[in-house]
Amino acid sequence: LNLKQAKEEAIKELVDAGIAEKYIKLIANAKTVEGVWTLKDEILTFTV
């Protein structure tokens, strides 16, 4: 999975969960695949 694909998957998951745009922007700015997954997990843990 490359960075672009990771971001697309994570953003789709966050949108489906009804997460606010400000958190989705954090994913869009992530620099690594690991960073994308870590941010996604943290956002889902603390906002859902």
Rank of each mutant, 00 (worst) to 15 (best):
L1P: 10
L1T: 12
L1S: 12
L1V: 11
N2P: 09
N2M: 13
N2S: 14
N2W: 10
N2H: 13
L3H: 02
L3N: 01
L3I: 06
L3D: 01
L3V: 06
L3S: 01
K4A: 14
K4I: 12
K4M: 11
Q5T: 09
Q5R: 11
Q5L: 09
Q5I: 12
A6W: 04
A6K: 03
K7R: 08
K7L: 06
E8I: 11
E8A: 11
E8D: 10
E8V: 09
E8M: 13
E9P: 00
E9I: 15
E9R: 10
E9A: 14
E9N: 10
A10K: 00
A10W: 02
A10L: 05
A10H: 00
I11E: 04
I11F: 03
I11Y: 05
I11Q: 04
K12R: 12
K12Q: 08
K12H: 05
K12I: 06
K12F: 05
E13K: 06
E13S: 10
E13M: 13
L14F: 04
L14N: 00
L14V: 02
L14K: 00
L14D: 00
L14R: 00
L14A: 03
V15H: 10
V15I: 13
V15G: 05
V15M: 15
V15Q: 13
V15E: 11
D16A: 15
D16T: 10
D16G: 10
D16M: 15
A17G: 05
A17F: 08
A17Y: 09
A17N: 07
A17S: 06
A17V: 05
G18R: 05
G18Q: 05
G18F: 04
G18C: 05
I19Q: 02
I19V: 15
I19H: 03
I19D: 01
I19N: 01
A20V: 05
A20Y: 05
A20W: 04
A20C: 06
E21A: 09
E21C: 06
E21M: 11
K22G: 06
K22M: 11
K22T: 09
K22V: 11
Y23A: 03
Y23F: 15
Y23Q: 06
Y23N: 02
Y23R: 01
Y23L: 07
I24G: 02
I24Q: 07
I24S: 03
I24Y: 10
I24M: 05
I24C: 04
I24L: 11
I24H: 08
K25R: 11
K25L: 14
K25P: 05
K25T: 11
K25G: 08
K25I: 12
L26M: 11
L26K: 05
L26H: 05
L26C: 06
I27H: 00
I27R: 00
I27T: 00
I27W: 01
I27E: 00
I27D: 01
A28G: 08
A28K: 11
N29Q: 12
N29K: 08
N29A: 12
A30W: 01
A30Y: 02
A30T: 04
A30C: 14
A30P: 02
A30Q: 09
K31P: 08
K31N: 12
K31Y: 08
T32W: 02
T32V: 02
T32L: 02
T32G: 02
V33L: 07
V33A: 06
V33P: 06
V33I: 11
V33F: 04
E34D: 08
E34T: 08
E34G: 06
E34P: 04
E34Y: 07
E34N: 07
G35D: 15
G35V: 09
G35E: 15
G35H: 14
G35Q: 15
V36R: 00
V36A: 02
V36Y: 01
V36M: 03
V36F: 01
V36E: 00
W37G: 06
W37A: 10
W37E: 08
W37V: 08
W37P: 00
W37H: 10
T38G: 08
T38S: 13
T38D: 07
T38A: 15
T38E: 08
T38V: 12
T38L: 13
T38Q: 15
T38C: 08
L39P: 00
L39A: 05
L39M: 08
L39D: 00
L39K: 04
L39H: 02
L39N: 02
K40Q: 04
K40P: 00
K40W: 06
K40Y: 13
D41H: 13
D41C: 09
D41K: 12
D41T: 11
D41W: 13
D41P: 01
E42C: 08
E42W: 15
E42A: 15
I43N: 00
I43F: 08
I43S: 01
I43H: 01
I43R: 00
I43M: 06
L44E: 03
L44K: 06
L44W: 04
L44M: 10
L44G: 02
L44H: 03
L44F: 07
L44A: 06
L44R: 03
T45G: 15
T45N: 15
T45K: 15
F46A: 11
F46S: 12
F46Q: 13
T47S: 14
T47K: 09
T47C: 10
V48T: 13
V48R: 03
V48G: 15
V48D: 11
